[in-house]
Design a protein around this nucleic acid. Structure first.
Lengths: 220, 220
DNA sequence: AACTTAGACGTACAGCGTAAGTCTAACGTA
DNA sequence: TACGTTAGACTTACGCTGTACGTCTAAGTT
């Protein structure tokens, strides 16, 4: 297929293209080797194993996320960072699952977390509060994105999909879901969720925790 | 192994025990059959395929979540529901991933979503706002739980784990992460996140959306 | 007594990650 | 130029996966 020398870089480039196009579960050492014009075991001269490939791909994706801009007010900076993360995760739909289900300690990930903590500390949050705030925002980023990606419906097909599913939702058994589905069919509601809605709920509530440090922060 | 007749019920019971103990990736048709004292292909007389087993297991887990109590004020009801969901997901650590990465339309799931929407509608949220509120809360439930489960450290081992990892976090490169890790090592901070912290951020901010209906809810 | 059927079983296939060993071509040094 | 080393692609093999397909047995029905 190609006379180029096989390198770790070339393997990762090709793997990223492949998973962006075909999904993570479609990535196998044999197929990846085939795309590179090589046999499976040759890959092991350049990478330790498949897990190392996935770890490296995840860190590349994390590296695409815009770090919070220190010039911005904290809320604007966190909003921008969260929106960037959401966009990146939609661009690489396979990536969110390995991010939340594996230990990721690549350089891009460490840089990303450190910059986020730094932004919150600079805004007057205590170290513990910054940690909690960061965790709350990231829970939203990953949770929202996973629910969004799982919804296997493009916006334009939503109405026809609702028509197809409504007979599985008898109104006497599931009155509220039935009603919501009806509104979608009738065009009164597009049924789309908005990442920034939940994000603003969190950012607005965080405001009052600046400069505060509670002993028992979970049970306020 | 057993003279009991093989039934769908018995297969699902055994599968649930198995994945609770060994994890979802350890579930294979051959192993499951072996535990049941039977050969793999016999399972196919009672279930269509492995995916159907997983779908059924997920719906059982969803069925364990307490529905919002109509007698409670909306915020208390949603808090109780979310906490129950979080507890159930920790009890079945394998379950969150298939919940967020597959289409789940089992009866328990439909009942669960309908009851949640009903609670929010009864509290004065519009249909669209109820949908958005439910989505924001569930994003937190699944996102937080996945991050929590991914953190491969029991609370008691946190300090020793921090000591082990701190040399990978040079202070000149990652000053804030280094500082946070130091605080954990010195016992000034336990490093544990709290589900209810983010939950209260969301619930408190939702309050002001009761009875309101915005045309463009994502960009306020 | 003959027929039907439920359900367990055996075999087989195409795929997976990767351990282990082999072969070839390029390179450094004498 | 000749020899020794080595990087790196190769082949083979093992145990695992889900499941399509066909068979065989025992119980139930007519």
């Amino acid at each position: 297929m190609s006379a180029l020398p096989l390198t770790r870089e070339r393997i990762l480039d090709t793997a990223l293209e492949w998973v962006d196009a075909e999904g993570l579960e479609a990535l196998s050492m044999r197929k990846l080797a085939q795309v590179l014009g090589v046999k499976a075991m040759s890959l092991y001269n350049h990478v330790a194993n498949k897990d190392e490939i996935i770890d490296a791909l995840v860190d590349r994706v994390i590296g695409e996320i815009a770090l919070p801009d220190p010039a911005l007010e904290w809320k604007a900076a966190m909003r921008q960072r969260a929106i960037s993360a959401h966009e990146v995760l939609l661009r690489h739909p396979w990536a969110t699952m390995p991010i939340v289900s594996r230990m990721n300690v690549g350089p891009a990930m460490l840089r990303y977390v450190d910059a986020t903590l730094g932004c919150l500390l600079g805004a007057g949050f205590s170290a513990e509060m910054a940690d909690h705030a960061w965790n709350a925002i990231d829970s939203h980023i990953y949770g929202f994105t996973l629910l969004e990606l799982n919804f296997p419906i493009a916006a334009t097909e939503y109405v026809s999909m609702a028509k197809q599913f409504i007979h599985r939702i008898p109104p006497e058994q599931y009155p509220h879901m039935h009603h919501l589905t009806q509104r979608i069919i009738q065009g009164d509601y597009d049924g789309l969720h908005h990442f920034e809605f939940g994000l603003e709920l969190i950012l607005n509530s965080l405001e009052k925790w600046r400069g505060v440090d509670l002993p028992s922060v979970g049970r306020n």
